[in-house]
Design a protein around this nucleic acid. Structure first.
Ligand SMILES: Nc1ncnc2c1ncn2[C@@H]1O[C@H](COP(=O)(O)OP(=O)(O)OP(=O)(O)O)[C@@H](O)[C@H]1O
Length: 725
DNA sequence: TTCAAAGTTGTTTTT
DNA sequence: CAACTTTGAA
């Protein structure tokens, strides 16, 4: 159909168009920010299906985040005007998880394996370190080392073989024990998803051939941030035709600290003799001034491919540089700048920072100004303790070998089964070479046993009930709800009386709603699939209201996104570039990070720094970032005016709040007003006196001393309080 | 076994 | 500074 070719021409420039048509053989698109790399990949995918008769399941397309994958799916469906499913479009991790679910048995796992997150990994490593009696080494650094090995596809034997010195040997030993522990638990960590898929493809010739034959085209976005293991994986999946398109920008490589190898993209030609390299030089995203700032800074890097980049867009506004005395003034001035635009909360404004901790001051100030915002990063919904507790129950029910999750649920909620009992049964299990669960089962019917045994027997009774509930023919949400109910978790939260537990109960209810939602979106899929989706969830996936708020995030999470207005904050030497250890600082990667941040902006860019910043309680002074000095001055307008700002009250001003804030103007004025010294009545705690008030309406928080003498924090929105005065 | 109080860590960045 | 972990008393 000619229509499609004309359509392609109308949507792409010449170079992009040629890149899309270069279907066969290896192709590398090395191009600067905003040049349409992702766009080319998207149109290529659509065109392969439409013009080349390639079936969706024959394309392996890898994106950096799940969100990017979803967007690509949506775009392609729109271009093709038909919804179609691409089973092999996703992140490396989700694609691998899918492969492993199909073939886990070949590796000695079952297909219902659990994916361990950071927290689970830490629990397992801690257990190993405790057994080894090694308290000196931090679990985090063990995890970090193991992860490095896996990113380079080095097994524990390999790690032991290349060890030099006692420390290396210890790490190798823990790596080996950790890996065996994971396998015994029928669990994999994030890096295993890649690692074990490589192992699978290496070991199982039929599986490998199956993929090589069925995958006709491979497309990879953000190739500059792939690691060695991922590169190996691609080589194993790629058929003899070498139909592979990789896309990236070496200047945007910002995950070196996690094993990403820029050389994957820079030396790509070494692996494919007939490589077709395409360079795209026109930027469609940003104004000339924004691009000027980006280029003038990035050219200070020595290890890079020099690239021309230009734009037909306007000069646009000059870049504003805000100079501030401290972080509060910075936040205040940003908000003032932001309010210059009356469309500041239409979802097209973003505030970036180098470290997550910096978001707090900005949040405080935004809330104070009643500006709706959302924060990416920090604690995700599924990372909350109460949600993870419920998840642990579900994980055990899907994968009974998951001892880490099992350890989490034994005494949650409190059942009087403490450390000592657990230790005793762990020893017993170790001696009989069984699992802790099996050790428990030996006293399942011992009603005449010790107090501890009775408690275990009653726990097992609960466990059996949970098993039965999950087997039932019922909806996913009903099953989840039954687990929360039967485990006693619901009652525990409801009756605890601690104010925070009321919030937790709401989150648990929200989790049941999430299960219902999952079932809606994926009819026919069950608990195991639900758990996998959650395990692979990323920050970006949290459904939040970008449309009507200001978005706050780290520069790392901003990769690949674009915003009309961008505020880049905390530009102080030592913070951005972040220098923790002067000898090992990677300034070039920091500079690339700066480049990524700046090139997210379409129309307006504001840079800011603070001469002093409060860190761990005391003010730290710093010079403006060296990157600011690298900007050619004619792009900038400096704003020095040290306007007085109202410093927030010192002390406890910050309360942990939802990572999303939408002011509710009506309710702000409603509800009874509380004051210090007022007497109130609470359903559970009886009469009390208000010691302290904070905030108003929905966001109000109170500290109340009840009859028992203990002050308690309460939120009147949830706590049913009756005013007595 | 459990809770509260004292002590101690940490801030990169995340799929 | 604040979140987390360990310690000690009941
Ligand atoms: N030929 C074109 N015509 C119109 N708009 C274009 C064209 N090419 C790219 N764009 C637009 O430019 C912006 C950047 O494109 P895209 O996100 O694909 O670039 P990228 O190279 O992947 O960027 P980055 O590497 O910075 O993430 C998008 O808004 C895209 O729609």
């Amino acid at each position: 159909m000619n229509f499609d070719i004309d359509y392609l021409r109308s949507q792409l420039n010449d170079v992009q168009y040629q890149a899309v048509l270069g279907y066969d053989g290896p192709q590398l698109l090395l191009a600067g920010a905003g040049s349409g790399k992702t766009r080319v990949l998207t149109y290529k995918l659509a065109s392969l299906v439409r013009n080349r008769g390639v079936a969706p399941h024959q394309v392996l397309a890898v994106t950096f985040t799940n969100k990017a994958a979803r967007e690509m799916k949506t775009r392609v469906a729109k271009i093709l005007e038909t919804p179609c499913s691409f089973p092999w479009l996703g992140t490396f991790h989700s694609v691998c998880a899918r492969i492993l679910r199909m073939y886990a048995e070949h590796l000695g796992y079952t297909s219902s394996f659990t994916i361990y997150d950071r927290d689970d990994q830490k629990r397992l490593v801690k257990k190993i370190l405790k057994q080894a009696g090694d308290e000196k080494i931090k679990p985090e650094s063990v995890i970090y080392n193991i992860s490095n090995f896996k990113n380079n596809y080095i097994s524990f034997d390999g790690a032991a073989a290349m060890a030099s010195g006692g420390y290396d040997l210890r790490i190798a030993k823990y790596y080996s024990q950790y890996q065996k522990g994971l396998k015994a638990n029928n669990a994999m960590d994030f890096d295993d998803l890649i690692f074990l898929t490589i192992s699978l493809l290496k070991q199982q010739e039929e599986v490998r051939e199956r993929f090589k034959n069925s995958v006709r085209y491979v497309l990879i976005d953000e190739f500059q941030d792939t690691n060695k293991a991922q590169f190996q994986l691609i080589q194993l999946l790629l058929g003899p035709h070498n139909n592979i398109t990789v896309v990236g920008d070496d200047d945007q490589s910002i995950y070196g600290w996690r094993g990403a190898e820029v050389t994957n993209i820079l030396n790509f030609g070494d692996y494919f003799s007939n490589l077709n390299t395409v360079k795209m030089e026109q930027n469609y995203r940003s104004t000339k001034n924004i691009l000027g700032v980006a280029s003038s800074v990035i050219k200070h890097n020595r290890e890079r491919h020099n690239k021309t980049i230009w734009t037909a867009n306007d000069d646009g506004e000059k870049i504003v540089l805000l100079e501030n005395e401290n972080e509060n003034q910075e936040a205040e001035k940003i908000i003032r700048q932001l309010k210059n635009d009356d469309t500041f909360s239409n979802g097209e404004t973003a505030i970036f920072y180098r470290t997550n901790a910096q978001s707090r001051v900005l949040e405080d100030q935004l809330r104070r100004h009643n500006i709706p915002y959302m924060v990416l990063g920090g604690i995700r919904f599924y990372d909350r303790k109460e949600v993870k507790d419920v998840l642990a129950y579900l994980h055990v029910l899907v994968n009974p070998k998951d001892s880490v999750s099992f350890g989490r649920i034994i005494n949650t909620p409190r059942r009087g089964i403490g450390n000592k009992t657990i230790e005793m049964f762990t020893d017993m299990a170790l001696q009989n070479n069984t699992t802790l669960f099996e050790a428990f089962c030996t006293v399942e019917n011992a009603y005449n046993g010790t107090a501890a045994e009775k408690k275990i027997a009653s726990f097992l009774k609960i466990y059996r009930a949970l098993e039965a509930a999950v087997q039932q023919e019922s909806s996913l949400a009903e099953k989840v709800d039954a687990v929360i109910e039967l485990s006693g978790y619901h009652a525990f939260l409801k009756e605890s009386g601690i104010e925070d537990d009321r919030d937790r109960l709401e989150n648990v209810a929200e989790f049941v709603a999430a299960a219902a939602d999952f079932e809606n979106r994926n009819p026919g899929k069950g608990l195991a699939e639900f758990l996998q989706e959650i395990s692979l969830y990323t920050q970006e996936d949290e459904v939040k209201v970008r449309q009507s708020s200001v978005t706050l995030m780290t520069v790392h999470s901003a990769k690949g996104l674009e915003f009309s207005r961008v505020f880049l904050t905390g530009l102080e030497d030592g913070l951005f570039p972040l220098i923790r250890d002067a000898d090992n600082a990677d300034i070039e990667e920091e500079r690339r990070l700066f480049y990524v941040a700046v090139t997210r902006a379409e129309k307006k860019l504001v840079l800011s720094f603070a001469t002093s910043r409060r860190t761990w309680g005391n003010a730290v002074f710093a010079d403006p970032s060296r990157f600011i000095n690298e900007i050619e001055p004619h792009f900038l307008t400096r704003e020095t005016g040290m306007a007085r700002v109202t410093a927030p009250k010192t002390g406890r001003h910050y309360e942990p709040v939802e990572d999303q804030y939408i002011p509710n103007y009506e309710e702000e004025c409603e509800g009874p007003a509380f004051f210090q010294g007022q007497h109130v009545q609470h359903k559970l705690f009886g009469m009390g006196t208000i010691l302290k008030t904070e905030g108003f309406g929905e966001s109000a928080r109170l500290v109340i001393r009840f009859q028992d003498g203990n002050p308690k924090k309460m939120i009147p929105k949830f706590a049913k309080l009756t005013v007595l005065d």
